[in-house]
């Protein structure tokens, strides 16, 4: 039976560092998705995720079992992203422009059949158009799978505030994406 996150971290804290491999295996995809959504460059996103795991490992003793491991990792990741922004003078409010040409050779965004990579690029660009707290709320909710309680704790806001951010973010995002054909599920 798979160990819980808490059991995993207890073993890592007890010196069985090999279990950190499982932590990385469990959360690499989630963290990479969030980092790639926040940062323009995929290679940088991967570096930031590695740094996040390194920092988590380095301060593994400060992890408390009553905390959610994914909340903890995301908190470290967000701060690592902020450091990248500082280094590159890329403030959070400077997004990639939505480029309709990405939607196809004709530059016509309504043609549909967007490739997965194109949709991914469009969504990332659209998220970067939002105020960062709204975009982060959506990333935490959809990509990390946090509850609104956990999002509120992570972002130092009320649960109702987290839901309001999510709703506002989704409204803006819907406006940005409406011109693109919705991908088939």
């Amino acid at each position: 039976m798979a160990l819980t996150d808490e059991e995993l971290m207890r073993r890592v804290q007890a010196g069985e560092s090999v279990w950190f491999e499982e932590v990385v295996r469990r959360y690499r995809t989630v963290l990479t998705r969030v980092a790639a959504s926040k940062l323009v460059d995929s290679a940088t996103a991967e570096d930031v995720v590695q740094e996040t795991f390194l920092a988590a490992f380095a301060c593994r003793q400060s992890f408390k079992p009553n905390l959610s491991l994914r909340v903890w990792l995301v908190a470290i990741l967000f701060n690592a992203c902020k450091r990248v922004w500082r280094q590159r003078q890329q403030p959070t409010g400077q997004p990639l422009p939505l480029d309709p040409a990405l939607a196809g050779e004709t530059g016509e965004p309504h043609e549909g059949n967007l490739l997965a990579a194109e949709r991914d690029h469009i969504l990332r660009a659209a998220l970067r158009q939002l105020p960062e707290p709204q975009a982060d709320t959506l990333r935490l909710r959809f990509f990390v799978g946090l509850s609104f309680d956990e999002i509120a704790a992570s972002m130092n806001c009320s649960v109702s505030g987290a839901k309001r951010r999510a709703k506002l973010g989704l409204e803006s995002l819907a406006g940005l994406l409406r011109s693109y054909q919705e991908p088939t599920r």
């Binding site: 995809t29 990479t32 998705r33 790639a36 995929s42 991967e46 997965a116 990579a117 949709r119 991914d120 969504l123 659209a126 959506l138 959809f142 990509f143 799978g145 709703k167 973010g169 989704l170 409204e171 995002l173 819907a174 994406l177 409406r178 693109y180 919705e182 991908p183 599920r185």
Partner: peptide, 20 residues
């Protein structure tokens, strides 16, 4: 909210979108 919900859900469930 439908376009946003659909795109976010699709991205969340698509493991292949994350390539190293």
């Amino acid at each position: 909210l439908s376009p946003a919900l659909t795109w976010m859900t699709e991205a969340a469930l698509d493991d292949e979108a994350i390539d190293s």
